[in-house]
Structure formats: C-alpha cells, structure tokens
C-alpha cells in the first residue's frame, strides 16, 4: 500500500508529464501567433523549466515525452526530437542539482543555450538540402526570430510553471507539518 508521500510524488510526476504533453499539443496547433513569420518553440523552455523542479530521471523522461509529441508533427526523422529534448531535460536537471540554483536566471540561461543549439542544428540540417545557399535566408528570416521569440517567452513560462508546481508541493508540506504536530 503506497504511503501518502509516495502517492504525492506520483501525482507530482504525473503533473510534469501532463504539462509537457499539453505544451506539445499546443505547439503543434500553432496556438501562439506568428510574429512576422517567427514561431515560438514553447516545448524547449517548458522542458528546461520543468527540469528545475523535478529529479533527473523524471526530467529526462519528461523531455523524451515532449520530444515524442513534437515528433508527431515534425518533418525531421522520428526520434530526433525525443532524444534532443530528453538530453536537454537531463542536463538541466543535473546542472541544477549539482552546480546551479533554481531561479528565473537559470531557466533563462538554459532556454537560451538549448534553444540556440536547436536552432543551429536545424539550420545546418536544412542547409544541407540547399547546398548551403539557403543558410542566410533561413537563419535570419525564420530561425533567429523564432529563437528570440522563444527566449522572450521563457519568463512567462517560468512564472506559470513555478506557480503550478509549487501548489502541490506547498499543499503537501502543510499536510506533513500538520501530521507532525498531531504526532
């Protein structure tokens, strides 16, 4: 029979998966409007921010889940995005647990690095289709504006997810405090 603490951990981890899957479905629906051709890749900041609040295995699994949802609509080979986002989640979680603090600045830094890397890889992959002729147009007209748009959304995503993930944790901390007093 699982204890209350185990059940709480299970629900909290399930919430992380629900959040990344919901973000993936919203992204595939192009829910956020295009700004002068730029699109927001919201799954990247969502995975980075989620990794700040969860353990390394859960962050890795949530990244894979996010990538799998993105792969449904993606034109890149299946599995590429699952691998990329899985390792993004893993690295963010490891760095936060060992070397960095959980804060908006850390989330922003992660978002900047992993979004930038994503955009660079994607540009190079596309460039191979054009024999490198199309790099400037593709990068400056689409990928760079999309990267900026994504990074600018990071504080909003951090604020929302910070509040969401804290609600469950605060509730459980209060429950533990009350139980300790009763005992």
């Amino acid at each position: 029979m699982p204890t209350k603490e185990q059940r709480f951990v299970f629900y909290r981890n399930a919430l992380a998966f629900a959040v990344v899957v919901a973000a993936g479905l919203l992204q595939n629906s192009l829910w956020l409007p295009e700004v002068r051709g730029a699109r927001a890749f919201i799954l990247l900041p969502v995975v980075c921010v989620t990794a700040l609040f969860f353990s390394v295995p859960v962050s890795f699994a949530a990244g894979i889940a996010a990538g799998a949802v993105w792969d449904i609509a993606s034109t890149t080979p299946d599995g590429y995005l699952a691998v990329y986002l899985g390792f993004s989640g893993l690295l963010c979680a490891v760095l936060v647990r060992r070397y960095m603090r959980r804060s908006l600045r850390t989330a922003w830094l992660f978002c900047f690095v992993f979004s930038g890397l994503f955009v660079l890889i994607r540009t190079l992959v596309y460039a191979s289709y054009f024999d490198f002729q199309g790099i400037p147009a593709l990068f400056f007209q689409f990928f760079l504006p999309s990267f900026v748009y994504t990074v600018l959304l990071c504080p909003v995503i951090y604020a929302v997810l910070n509040r969401l993930y804290s609600i469950l944790s605060d509730g459980f901390e209060k429950y533990k405090l009350v139980n300790r007093r009763i005992k």
Partner: peptide
C-alpha cells in the same frame, strides 16, 4: 497540426 520548427 503543424511543425512549429518547419519553415516550409
């Protein structure tokens, strides 16, 4: 659905 990261 559409791929957000696909320019085409």
């Amino acid at each position: 659905g559409r791929d957000a990261a696909d320019a085409f």
